[in-house]
């Protein structure tokens, strides 16, 4: 099954050691997205970077440093993203949230596949 829609992509950048109510911020955001039934969420860990505050973040393999740069990529329709953005605003204390317009095609397995 193929479904086309025009929507928005949100990318959120912060550090791996950022927390929200005791658990990693990225896990908390993914869980919140799932509650809101957001279509697609993926979290990437960068190997090096810097952001607000200009601290260099590195995922040190040998030091087991946890402060790697984290990027979340979230995609859904404009309405769904509009619901999510205020929530992201309260959860992300230090970081960057960027949105862009995208054309999306969603493929889903269905019993009566076309």
């Amino acid at each position: 099954m193929k479904e086309q829609f025009s929507g928005r992509m949100v990318r959120v950048h912060f550090g791996e050691d950022d927390r929200w109510q005791g658990k990693p911020l990225y896990e908390a955001i993914v869980a919140r997205c799932k509650e809101l039934d957001i279509a697609e969420v993926i979290v990437f860990r960068g190997i090096e970077g810097f952001g607000s505050g200009s601290r260099i973040r590195r995922s040190g393999h040998w030091t087991f440093s946890k402060d790697a740069p984290i990027q979340l990529s979230i995609i859904d329709t404009d309405e769904q993203i509009a619901r999510l953005l205020p929530i992201l605003g309260t959860m992300v204390e230090e970081g960057l949230v960027a949105t862009s317009t995208v054309d999306a095609i969603r493929y889903r397995r269905s019993s009566a596949s076309s």
Binding site: A39, V41, R109
Partner: peptide, 14 residues
């Protein structure tokens, strides 16, 4: 190709 450390998609499995 990028590998995510966490995520979910169409099938709703994390």
């Amino acid at each position: 190709v990028y590998r995510g450390i966490l995520g979910y998609g169409a099938h709703r499995r994390i």
